[in-house]
Write a protein that binds this DNA or RNA. Structure first.
Lengths: 170, 170
DNA sequence: ACTGGATTGAAAGTGATTCTCATTTTCGTG
DNA sequence: CACGAAAATGAGAATCACTTTCAATCCAGT
């Protein structure tokens, strides 16, 4: 059956260093706000919204403004360190990017739990379909919505608390 | 290889009748606004935005308000006659729902052309993956973004004009 | 340390969508 | 057909997530 494998290859510190390098490369300045926001982002291995990130950062450094969190998150995206996702709750969520491989999401509609997965067979089929219709794919988005085992079993829904941070390679 | 088949099984008139039936079932009132909006929606076999729908309806009946178009589109969605889609241009688009089968989208990032397709093999794989992770799928979303043959060949991009309204069954 | 351009925060601005509420319309009943 | 309650409408205000503005502040190269 499917095997679950952890795939966080870079440590927080390595990611943070990559961020600092990216700033230098682009001749952008290092500021305490950027550092704090990036650190909190890298420490959080989940699908975090800007709102959530803002609140977390506030606890570390109460002087940061909302706009700066947005700006920094955009910066992280442009540096290839964050990936933006739009699930169906209206707000964008960001996740750490691992150089390795793209993945998709399985979302529990009851408790909000998000499980990541990757499947090569599906990716190959997508390429085939696109090719038949004359397209070359540059990126894709696949989200499966449903109910997780726990929610179906009627046990206490755990308020999206236990978000998975592993990719299941199937 | 893949075969393309037209799948619009209900005529505009049949869809309109279904709408009127749905209103009656829910003891909602028939109004000229609702009728006009629904008629325009059913006549348009593409992925229309509320803005576009509003403009079209205005030409038929200039007294309809923006809010009513939004309300009616929501109603159509609730009646199962319209499906809401969120591609990456910020605004929601609605399409006619055919009872038959769900489909996914292939979107050209250059000209905006949207091609629909359906693929059972992928759907089966999705079910398998979800099952392995303990989920039961209720719905999904799959969008492939890329470049269509025409845009890659460098010919004049046709400003999203020729939107496809056929589902390619692959 | 100096200094000019980058960065920041607060608040105003956006764009899509929803809500409010006074006015109008529909439709079952008399 | 006329009533009248309940529903629907439209104009504009409100909301929500996000971006921009701009004066004040901060960083980094000299």
């Amino acid at each position: 059956m499917g095997s679950s494998t952890a795939v966080s290859h870079r440590t927080q510190a390595q990611r943070f260093a990559a961020f600092k390098d990216a700033l230098r490369e682009r001749s952008l300045k290092s500021t305490s706000q950027r550092d704090d926001i990036a650190r909190v982002f890298f420490a959080n291995d989940q699908h975090i919204s800007v709102e959530e990130l803002y609140r977390e950062v506030k606890r570390v450094n109460p002087r940061v403004g909302y706009a700066t969190v947005y700006r920094t998150v955009r910066l992280l995206r442009e540096c290839g360190l964050a990936a933006e996702r739009h699930f169906h709750d209206g707000e964008a969520r960001f996740e750490n990017v691992e150089e390795e491989h793209h993945h998709d999401h399985l979302i529990c509609e009851r408790c909000g739990r998000i499980v990541e997965f990757a499947n090569d067979a599906i990716e190959r089929l997508q390429e085939q379909i696109a090719a038949r219709l004359g397209f070359v794919i540059t990126r894709h988005k696949m989200e499966l919505y449903g109910l997780c085992a726990e929610c179906r079993s009627g046990r206490t829904p755990h308020a999206a608390a236990k978000r998975e941070s592993r990719v299941s390679r199937t």
